[in-house]
Amino acid sequence: MDETALISLAQRGDLEAFNRLVLAYQDPLFNIALRILGDEDLAADATQEAFLHAFQKIASYRSGSFRGWLIRIVTNACYDELRRQKRRPQTSLEPFTAEGEEVESPAWLSDDRPSVEARLEQKELEHAIEHCLQALPPPFRVIVVLADIEGLDYAEIAAALRIPVGTVKSRLARARLRLRDCLAQFQELLPSAFRRTRK
């Protein structure tokens, strides 16, 4: 059954049809939430909340990209979570102590599980990218996740976030610049192509 038919059934309250849509979109939506929130458990909760909300509001979905509609819902769920975190601050991901001194082996870089060297390096690179992503202000982070990680084009991002394309362009450019400067701290983990551009 195609997506339009499933949406139509879901709009009439068919939970089974909606759950087939959930299965089709749960991985991309979870990945978006994960890269925005930087925490697997929080990302899972935000994704679950987004699907529940989507089912609630599916009657209001008219036309256009269903994926874009779901992305808007999951990014809103992530924003809600970020607002909650702001009200209840938790342990910082920044590799600095309360006195502002740099921590030599930050907790987010450590991985206790035994692993082959390449896998460990990949994991560390992922941690480094994650760290730099989390250092971005949320509006910049969301756009860079949607554009560079999820591969959405400017028009899709603008439609999903309900912002002008010009805003998408400028935020993405500034986010990439900040990421470039942040990633420079982790040169030894980065591919040679990146290291060459910094020389």
């Binding site: 991985d27 690179l125 992922e126 990218i129 470039r180």
Partner: peptide, 12 residues
Amino acid sequence: ATRDVLRQLPRR
């Protein structure tokens, strides 16, 4: 290069 690094993030 920055964009390419971001694209290397594995899909979970």
